[in-house]
Amino acid sequence: MNTQKHDFTAAPVQIEELAPAARFSLRVRPDGRAALAQALGLDLPGGIGDRTADGGREALCLGPDEWLILAPEAAPLAKAAASVYADAPHSLTEISDREITLRLSGPQVLDLLASCCPRDVEAMPEGRGCRTVYDSATVTLWRDGPTEFRMDVWRSFLPHVLGLMALTKAELQAGL
């Protein structure tokens, strides 16, 4: 009875802002998927939540015709896609500045996410991603490891999201 966990030294979670990378929203119909994949040099996974990575580029399927594409550089990717536009009409919109990516990690990162994500994040397999909601902000969540995530947050929502995360981090540090 009345046991208290007070461990102020442990860091339950780390919250870091990652440097911007090139980010695109790709929209294409199923019959154009293969052509885009070839042009981008990156397999476009077919299942919502599935991810692929190749040569520094990453793709996350967010919807039946929607992929989030990450690349070290924007211009080559845009050029590659443009080359197949006539045969495989699509929309490739640069959104590198729309979101800011957080790296979330640490032994209690699942608790941090469970504070404001209503979906079962714990059940999300490693190597997958999804668009979901964190409190009232739409975010894209990438699970990179058992206790490692990335979260893309729309730029203007970031102060609110970070404010909530700071509260939860302090709560986790309190150890109750």
Binding site: S25, R27, D65, T93, E94, I95, S96, R98, E99, S156
Partner: peptide
């Protein structure tokens, strides 16, 4: 296709 670029 439509993409929100409000924050871009």
């Amino acid at each position: 296709w439509l993409t929100s670029t409000t924050e871009q």
